[in-house]
């Protein structure tokens, strides 16, 4: 008996060591491609081409970043993305709160009908073309309203907010109502302070979504000066993509086109993820809660 339990102990110890190693390796593997790009962005293009870059910058230099910022286009694109993200997120939160508050009240007239009306749009998702035609006929092309208006509210986040509000104790609100506060005052002065954690996590979700999205911009924004950072990056990657195909075709000249942008592309990638990495520590405090509330459907 004693021996078997000790055998178990050793087996478990080994299992535990293996477990820690496996998890450590998989998380490093998840990080590695990003790390590699970081190293490449600071390396000379000679070193990248020669395959000398693995974990650390080789022949450290800022050449790629200098080239990237040279023509100022990337700065304009960054500014555009910041505008899209800030205003988009503010509009999202305004609409989400305004909609979630009344919907969280059981006494709301026609509540179940409204909820069905909203839920149905999650089930039947209409295609790209009708939305495109709508945005075009509203004359929103090449304005950022073409991005903001069709995405004013994410139905999923609306339900998360509503579920959270439903979980708040009703007594607080009732006592405020007793003191003569109207719906608007209750919402702004009583509910909002209580909702701070969920407001924080939903804002971050919305903001990350705006920062990362590129397809809508690709569809609706045609002017080069209005382009977002992600679309600039997308175009850069597609270029490389095209030259890679030429390369596959065996033409010699293509190699030059392919080799030059590799470091610059890495630099652009690093610039595009840096803001995400900066908010990530704040994000991770909140997102698990957001996900768990979302999974408890109300």
């Amino acid at each position: 008996m004693k021996r078997t339990s000790r055998a178990y102990g050793i087996a478990e110890g080994m299992g535990r060591g293996f477990l820690y190693m496996f998890l450590g390796l998989s998380s490093l593997l998840a990080l590695f491609p990003l790390w590699y790009e970081l190293a490449a962005s600071f390396s000379s293009s000679r070193a990248i081409t020669a395959g000398e870059v693995l974990l650390w910058p080789v022949e450290f230099n800022l050449h790629a970043y200098n080239r990237l910022f040279e023509d100022g286009q990337i700065l304009v694109a960054m500014r555009n993305t910041v505008v899209i993200t800030l205003i988009g997120t503010s509009l999202n939160m305004l609409m989400t709160i305004l909609a979630a508050y009344p919907l969280s009240k059981r006494r709301l007239m026609g509540r179940s009908g409204l909820l069905l009306f909203i839920t149905f749009t999650m089930l039947f998702v209409s295609g790209i073309i009708p939305s495109f035609i709508l945005v075009k006929s509203l004359g929103l092309m090449d304005t950022y309203w073409s991005l903001w208006l069709p995405a004013l509210v994410s139905t999923y986040n609306l339900f998360v907010m509503k579920t959270f509000m439903e979980g708040l104790p009703e007594e607080i609100e009732e006592s405020a109502a007793m003191d003569g506060a109207g719906d608007w005052r209750i919402l702004t002065q009583v509910m909002l302070p209580l909702c701070k954690p969920i407001i924080a996590s939903l804002s971050l979700f919305y903001a990350v979504g705006w920062w990362n999205s590129y397809f809508q911009v690709l569809l609706y924004i045609t002017k080069s000066s209005h382009q977002s950072l992600m679309v600039k990056l997308y175009q850069m990657i597609n270029q490389v993509d095209a030259s890679l195909l030429n390369h596959a075709g065996g033409s010699e000249g293509a190699e030059q086109i392919l080799l030059t942008p590799e470091g610059i592309k890495a630099a652009a990638i690093i610039i595009a993820v840096t803001p995400i990495l900066c908010v990530y520590p704040f994000l991770q405090k909140h997102f698990v809660k957001g996900v768990l509330i979302g999974s408890v459907k109300g």
Binding site: N212, M230, L233, E262
Partner: peptide
């Protein structure tokens, strides 16, 4: 939390046949 443009760009770069 990272955009598909970035992840896709990384995937293409890391898997490139030459570099």
């Amino acid at each position: 939390f990272i955009s598909w443009v970035v992840l896709g760009g990384i995937v293409i770069a890391v898997l490139s046949p030459s570099t």
